[in-house]
């Protein structure tokens, strides 16, 4: 009997449900709807793939693709939190229903070879490279004395090399870089080869050298 009041009151009040899809509700601000990526900012570090609880992201940094399985994604937001470039976003709109199961693949530009980045800022990186190379050369066993003696030349050649690499863009740079020291003599030729070698050692930690551009990438992605 006590329910009578509630039930009769309902007759005169607006309904608690709405006639979806004729009338839709405004979505709240923080709603976790669907995952999306700005592929241009992605550096393919694969942090999102490693941290995803449902393993729905696959990243291929050789080909530069970022693949999401939208039906496996639980929109938890862990990948958004760990992304170093903040290129993942969770939008408000819920994902539309899909008619068949499929993967969403975004194609981005793979990681750029380092000389391209070094050429755009010519002086400073070259000096840094020179210092780093000096330290590396001091540590590295092959012909340390030669490289120390040839420091100013090394810096020149190093400064020249990135510029040449910018022009040549990849494998062609290697023979040209070797050519330059050849003009100055055999000693420096060997030095040049060592110079070519030391940048290899250095690129292990940061960027990719032009002569071994493709090989470096293969090493890293392996």
């Amino acid at each position: 009997m006590y329910m009578t009041k509630n039930v009769l009151r309902n007759l005169f009040k607006k309904s608690a449900t709405r006639l979806y899809p004729l009338e839709k509700r405004e979505i709240f601000e923080n709603v976790r709807g669907a995952l999306d990526i700005e592929i241009d900012k992605c550096i393919f570090c694969r942090a999102c793939q490693l941290r995803c609880p449902s393993q729905c992201i696959t990243v291929d940094n050789k080909a530069g693709t970022w693949t999401l399985d939208p039906m496996a994604c639980v929109v938890c937001g862990v990948c958004v939190a760990v992304c170093p470039k903040k290129c993942l976003h969770i939008g408000k709109q819920y994902r539309a229903p899909l008619l068949e199961r499929g993967l969403i693949t975004h194609q981005g530009t793979p990681r750029v070879p380092k000389p391209k980045a070094a050429a755009t800022a010519p002086v400073v990186p070259a000096e840094q490279n020179a210092e780093a190379e000096v330290q590396k050369a001091a540590v590295a066993t092959p012909a340390p004395v030669n490289t120390e003696a040839a420091t100013p030349e090394i810096s020149e050649t190093v400064a020249e090399k990135p510029v040449e690499a910018d022009i040549s863009q990849a494998a062609a740079a290697a023979p040209e870089a070797v050519e330059k020291p050849e003009a100055t003599g055999t000693e420096i030729e060997t030095n040049a080869e060592q110079i070519l070698e030391t940048p290899q050692a250095e690129s292990e930690k940061t960027e990719v050298k032009p002569d071994d551009a493709e090989q470096k990438k293969e090493d890293l992605s392996a």
Binding site: V7, L8, N10, L11, S15, A16, T17, L19
Partner: peptide
Amino acid sequence: GVDRRLTAWLQSRY
């Protein structure tokens, strides 16, 4: 049909 519609209104839904 009217029965179902009226029951629904009493329960605050369409």
